[in-house]
Design a protein around this nucleic acid. Structure first.
Lengths: 231, 231
DNA sequence: CGGGATGTTGATGGCAGTCAAGCTCGGTGG
DNA sequence: CCACCGAGCTTGACTGCCATCAACATCCCG
C-alpha cells in the first residue's frame, strides 16, 4: 500500500497545497483518506444541484467553478490551479458546477471523510479557514470588476493577474491557459468583446499575440496597468 | 464588571450570531474580550488600506462592505445585518471599507484578541469557517448577477432577497432598508436605472411603492419571480 | 417656509451585446 | 504532400441597454 510517507513528499503541490500547512500526523491521516484521479479536459467533477460528495486538492491542471442562470448564461465564479482546494465541506448539496479546463490531476477525498479529518486536525481546519477567507477576498475583488469596470479594464486586469500568477519575476511573455470563451465567462463579457479588446491593445502596441492568440507578450507594462485602471 | 453570564444571555443576537454556536466556556472568553460600541449612520468602522485591527458581531443595524476603483466608483461587496460577523482575522491590512448605513450597534473585539480566542476555542473557529463559506457562496451568487443579469433581473432579485430576509413567512409588504444609491452600488447599476426599474414594475402592477418609495408591497409575487429570471 | 438630501423622469449617447461573415491553425485522410 | 475540415478566433455592421447629463418632484428637518 502507498502511504503518506512515500507518496506525499513527492507530491507536486506538497509546498503549496492545503497539506503544506499541516503536521506529519495530519498529513498521514489525509493521505490515507485521499486517492489520485485525473480528469480529462472538459470533464465535469461536480454538477450544481447534485449531492455534494467530494473534496479535493488540485495536483496539476485547471478547474473552473461556474454558476448559471436559468436561461443558460454562465458565469465563472472561480478558477482553480495547482495547489488550490476544491469543494465545500459541511454543505449537503453542490451549488456550483466544477469542470476541468485542461487535463487535471486531483488528490480526491469523499466529503464525509474529509470532514472527519478536518474535525480531528485543528490545524487543517485553520488552514482551510485561511484559504476560504482568501477566496472570499478574491470573490469580492471580482465583484468590483464585474459591477464597475469597463471591458478594457477587465481584460487588461485579467492579463495582469495572469502574469502575476504565471511568473515569479516580471516575465514579459506568458500563455493564456484558457479559451476566449472561458475568458468571456470569467470576465462577464462576450467572446467578441474580449477579442476586440485584445486586438485593440495589440494595435496600440501594448501587447503582442503570437501563436494564434494564446500567448501574450507584454511590450508596455505601464500602459497595460494604465488600461486596467480607468481615470 | 459586566460578565458574560449577565450580559450575553440578553443579547439580541444570542440565538443567531457566531456566539450562538459555541459553548459556555468559549462564550465567557468571548464576552470578556468584547465590548459594545454603536456607530452612527454613515460612520466608517474600517477604511480600506488601514491596519486591520478590529472584528465584531453586529447586534443591530446594517453595515456595507465596499471596494472602490481608483477613479472613485464604488461596489458594495457585502451587506451585513444583525447577527453577522464583520472583519478578517489573520489579515494585516484591511482590503475593504466598512460603513454603517443606519445606526448600528456592535459587539467589538480587537482582531488580536479575537484571534487568540479563536485559537483557544476550536468550535468558535469551526463556526467562523462555516460562516465564511456561506459568505463565499453569497459572493459567488452575486458574481452571477453582476456578470450576467440585466437591470430588471437584478432589481427584482434584490427585492426577493429582501423579502426572504425580512419576513419569515411570505409577507407582502416590507421596507427597503437602504437608499437608492446604495441599492445601485450593490447591484452594479446607477441610481436612475434602479429607480426606473422600480417604477416599471410599479406600472406593471407587480409592486406598489407607498411611503415615498422606501416601502415595497408585492402585488404579484409570481410576476416578480418571473422578472428576476430571464427566459 | 426654505433648503438640502433623496428620488423620479426625460433626452441623449456610447459601450458592449448580437448577428453574421471571414480568418487561422492544427489535424485528418486521401 | 496537399486538400479539406472544424473549432476557435477575429472582424464588421447594427442594435439595444444602460450610463450620463439635466431638470424636476418629494421628503424631511430645521
Amino acid at each position: 500500500m502507498v502511504t503518506a510517507t512515500d507518496r506525499c513528499p513527492d507530491c507536486l503541490v506538497r509546498a503549496t497545497g492545503l497539506c503544506a500547512t499541516i503536521d506529519d500526523e495530519a498529513l498521514i491521516a489525509l493521505s490515507a483518506a485521499g486517492r489520485r484521479r485525473t480528469l480529462a479536459s472538459g470533464q465535469v467533477l461536480t454538477w450544481a444541484g447534485d449531492p455534494n460528495l467530494l473534496c479535493a486538492n488540485i495536483v496539476s491542471g485547471i478547474l473552473k467553478v461556474t454558476a448559471s442562470t436559468l436561461n443558460g448564461r454562465e458565469q465563472i465564479v472561480g478558477l482553480l490551479f495547482a495547489g488550490d482546494f476544491v469543494g465545500q465541506p459541511f454543505v449537503e448539496e453542490s451549488a456550483l458546477t466544477v469542470t476541468a479546463l485542461i487535463e487535471t490531476e486531483l488528490c480526491l477525498f469523499t466529503r464525509e471523510r474529509f470532514e472527519r479529518t478536518l474535525s480531528a486536525h485543528h490545524r487543517l481546519e485553520h488552514a482551510l479557514l485561511r484559504r476560504t477567507m482568501g477566496s472570499l477576498n478574491d470573490a469580492r475583488e471580482r465583484m468590483l470588476t464585474l459591477g464597475q469596470r469597463g471591458a478594457q479594464e477587465r481584460v487588461a486586469g485579467f492579463l495582469l493577474d495572469l502574469v502575476d500568477r504565471s511568473s515569479p519575476g516580471d516575465c514579459k511573455s506568458f500563455d493564456i491557459p484558457i479559451s476566449r470563451g472561458d475568458m468571456a465567462d470569467f470576465l462577464g463579457l462576450t467572446i467578441e468583446t474580449v477579442s476586440r479588446q485584445l486586438t485593440k491593445m495589440k494595435s496600440a502596441g501594448i501587447i503582442s499575440l503570437p501563436r494564434g492568440g494564446r500567448t501574450v507578450e507584454i511590450n508596455n507594462r505601464s500602459a497595460l496597468i494604465a488600461a486596467a485602471n480607468p481615470g
